[in-house]
Deep mutational scan, measured.
Amino acid sequence: GSPGIQSFLPPGWEMRIAPNGRPFFIDHNTKTTTWEDPRLK
């Protein structure tokens, strides 16, 4: 199987799917959430 997208996120980050189907990202380091992919910064 191919590695999940989770493995490509920075340490402490998690990806979830919102009720509307959009992915969002949780930064457990700062306890914040964002719509922006942290890998694109």
Rank of each mutant, 00 (worst) to 15 (best):
G1Q: 12
G1S: 12
G1H: 12
G1N: 12
G1E: 11
G1V: 13
G1I: 11
G1K: 11
G1P: 12
G1T: 13
G1L: 11
G1F: 12
S2R: 13
S2K: 13
S2E: 13
S2F: 10
P3M: 12
P3Q: 12
P3W: 08
P3Y: 08
G4N: 13
G4M: 08
G4Q: 13
G4C: 15
G4Y: 06
G4W: 05
I5L: 13
I5D: 13
I5N: 13
I5M: 13
I5E: 13
Q6P: 13
Q6T: 13
Q6R: 08
Q6I: 12
Q6V: 13
S7I: 12
S7Y: 12
S7D: 14
S7A: 14
S7Q: 13
S7N: 14
S7R: 12
S7H: 13
F8L: 13
F8T: 15
F8S: 15
F8W: 14
F8K: 15
F8Q: 15
F8E: 15
F8Y: 12
F8P: 15
L9Y: 02
L9K: 01
L9H: 01
L9A: 01
L9F: 06
L9N: 01
L9T: 01
L9W: 04
L9V: 02
L9Q: 01
L9M: 10
P10W: 07
P10T: 02
P10N: 03
P10A: 05
P10V: 05
P10H: 05
P10R: 08
P10E: 04
P11F: 13
P11Y: 11
P11E: 12
P11C: 15
P11K: 12
P11S: 12
P11Q: 11
G12M: 05
G12P: 04
G12F: 05
G12Q: 04
W13D: 00
W13H: 00
W13S: 00
W13T: 00
E14N: 02
E14P: 00
E14I: 07
E14W: 02
E14K: 04
M15I: 08
M15S: 03
M15E: 07
M15C: 11
M15Q: 06
M15A: 05
R16H: 07
R16M: 08
R16E: 04
I17W: 11
I17T: 08
I17V: 09
I17R: 10
I17N: 04
I17H: 07
A18F: 05
A18S: 10
A18T: 09
A18Y: 05
A18P: 03
A18N: 06
P19E: 08
P19L: 11
P19C: 15
P19N: 09
P19W: 10
P19G: 08
P19F: 10
P19I: 08
P19T: 09
N20W: 08
N20P: 02
G21H: 05
G21S: 03
G21V: 00
G21M: 04
G21K: 05
G21Q: 03
G21Y: 01
R22Q: 10
R22S: 07
R22V: 09
R22G: 02
R22H: 08
P23H: 10
P23R: 12
P23F: 11
P23N: 07
P23G: 04
P23T: 10
P23K: 11
P23I: 13
F24L: 08
F24V: 07
F24S: 02
F25Y: 11
F25H: 00
F25A: 00
F25T: 00
F25L: 01
F25G: 00
F25Q: 00
I26D: 00
I26P: 00
I26K: 02
I26V: 09
I26T: 04
I26S: 01
I26M: 06
I26R: 02
I26Y: 14
D27G: 00
D27L: 02
D27Y: 05
D27E: 04
D27V: 01
D27M: 02
D27S: 03
H28Q: 06
H28K: 07
H28P: 05
H28G: 06
H28L: 09
H28Y: 09
N29W: 09
N29S: 08
N29K: 09
N29R: 07
T30C: 08
T30V: 03
T30M: 06
T30H: 07
T30I: 02
K31A: 12
K31H: 13
K31G: 15
K31D: 11
K31I: 05
T32V: 09
T32R: 11
T32Q: 10
T33L: 13
T33A: 12
T33K: 12
T33V: 15
T33S: 10
T33P: 02
T33D: 02
T33F: 14
T33E: 07
T33R: 13
T34N: 02
T34Q: 08
T34R: 03
W35M: 05
W35Q: 03
W35N: 04
W35G: 02
W35S: 04
W35F: 09
W35T: 05
E36H: 14
E36C: 15
E36T: 11
E36L: 14
E36P: 00
E36M: 10
E36G: 06
E36V: 13
E36I: 14
E36N: 11
D37V: 05
D37K: 06
D37Q: 06
D37P: 11
P38T: 01
P38G: 01
P38D: 01
P38L: 01
P38Q: 02
P38K: 01
R39V: 05
R39F: 05
R39I: 04
R39M: 06
R39A: 05
R39P: 02
R39L: 05
L40P: 10
L40E: 15
L40N: 14
L40R: 07
L40D: 15
K41Y: 15
K41V: 15
K41L: 15
K41G: 15
K41H: 15
K41E: 15
K41T: 15
